[in-house]
């Protein structure tokens, strides 16, 4: 299970980093979302990976570490709020600056073949 989780986190992180390095806001938003998924999984795994342990006191004799679960819940909520804000900001930037380039300039339009990949 450790290996699967590690691979999943690694793939999510690398995809996220790749997308964040793109020059267009939509790709960057997607990249940040993937990155936050990876981070959430990582926090979840930080308490140790165990199967079949209870999270509620009094139900079983062995417990999973409840703190990372609480942390990841907080992180998910905050991440949602921030992503929502970022999407609105990206739409506003698209409207005000006339394009969705992160630097707000249309210089990249000179390479339509590069742009069409995303």
């Amino acid at each position: 299970m450790e290996l699967v989780i590690a691979i999943v986190i690694g793939v999510l992180t690398s995809c996220g980093v790749l997308l964040v390095l793109r020059a267009h806001t939509f790709a960057v938003v997607l990249g940040l979302t993937l990155l936050s998924y990876a981070v959430n999984l990582f926090i979840f795994a930080s308490g140790g990976l165990t199967a079949g342990k209870g999270a509620v006191l009094g139900q079983t004799d062995i417990y999973a570490d409840p703190l990372p679960q609480a942390l990841v819940l907080t992180a998910i909520v905050i991440g949602f709020a921030m992503t929502a804000f970022l999407v609105i900001l990206a739409i506003r930037a698209r409207a005000e600056l006339g394009n969705d380039h992160v630097d707000g300039d249309s210089g990249s339009r000179q390479h339509p073949d590069k742009e069409s990949r995303l």
Partner: peptide
Amino acid sequence: TKAALHYVLLNLLGSAVFLLALALLY
């Protein structure tokens, strides 16, 4: 708007890195 977009993106990345560090420390 332009300055804010950069500021928000950078800080969101910063938050992700912060959480990674916290999980490692925990």
